[in-house]
Design a protein around this nucleic acid. Sequence first.
DNA 1: CACGATTATATCGCGCACGATATAAATGCC
DNA 2: GGCATTTATATCGTGCGCGATATAATCGTG
Lengths: 151, 151
Amino acid sequence: MTNALQDPLSLDAQFCFAVYSTAHALNRTYKPLLDRLGITYPQYLVMLVLWEADDRSVGEIGEKLLLDSSTLTPLLKRLEAAGIVRRERNPQDERQVRVRLTEQGRAMRKVASDFPAELLCATGCDAETLTRLKTEMRDVRDRMLAASAAG
Amino acid sequence: MTNALQDPLSLDAQFCFAVYSTAHALNRTYKPLLDRLGITYPQYLVMLVLWEADDRSVGEIGEKLLLDSSTLTPLLKRLEAAGIVRRERNPQDERQVRVRLTEQGRAMRKVASDFPAELLCATGCDAETLTRLKTEMRDVRDRMLAASAAG
DNA sequence: CACGATTATATCGCGCACGATATAAATGCC
DNA sequence: GGCATTTATATCGTGCGCGATATAATCGTG
């Protein structure tokens, strides 16, 4: 009702700002959890990928996370410097760098196992709502990516 | 059904990654539109705030956008260097910096008036769906911010 | 087998974000 | 009215993200 009269260029009307500011709020919510692991949020995403399947190339990680080497290479070097992963050229294809968890990196998963429940609590949603929102957001994302790929 | 059996630490299970990657996809979708204005996405958010009500302090803009001066000061200086805004100390309170649009800054609004419809198109959603998602995301965000403020 | 094209990472420059700190103006309290 | 406190910006260091480019290994084709 009132919405129909709203200026399409008002901040309140913006879907994009709702997503942008929610992403920042998520970062802020994760911060105290990730401090236990001593890593940042993007580094945590890389850990999720490696916990699911270890020994990946930089490109495979980037494909999962929609990031490219200019973001991942420095990030992975920081994880390596922290003793969390190892990076080694693939002897079968020297162009590739394989990324593998160290023992320390694998052990961090136990600490992280509490995070999903803690995050759910912070959102104040029930699990079903958050799962539905997750799916709807991914659908919007994938249509946008398809649209920008199409040009 | 299948979801109930999913590992809570898998990437697919993460609400946060859905939001994170959607935020990036939005950035990518806005890029060609914002190139017409020669500004970045965070700069566009500042413009939305100023188009709604001109002559704001840095703090007022930050309150709207949930950003602080360490982000806004350099951004506003870039907008000033581009001739889009002016920054002047408030004579009534020399601590404050008032930000005002130039004629050029005001004129940019006409170009931007096409953006909401173009974005809607890129998402492949109908307006009602996007409005509902916007509201649901803001609700989650506000509960997270309240939770992290509470500690 | 040579050589141009493709593929995989890496590097560089720039603009956010954010935590921590600095600076300077205004306010409040005695 | 002087001085500690608060308020408003600014600055600094670090880590993303991304576009553009560089480099080196592999592949494909003649």
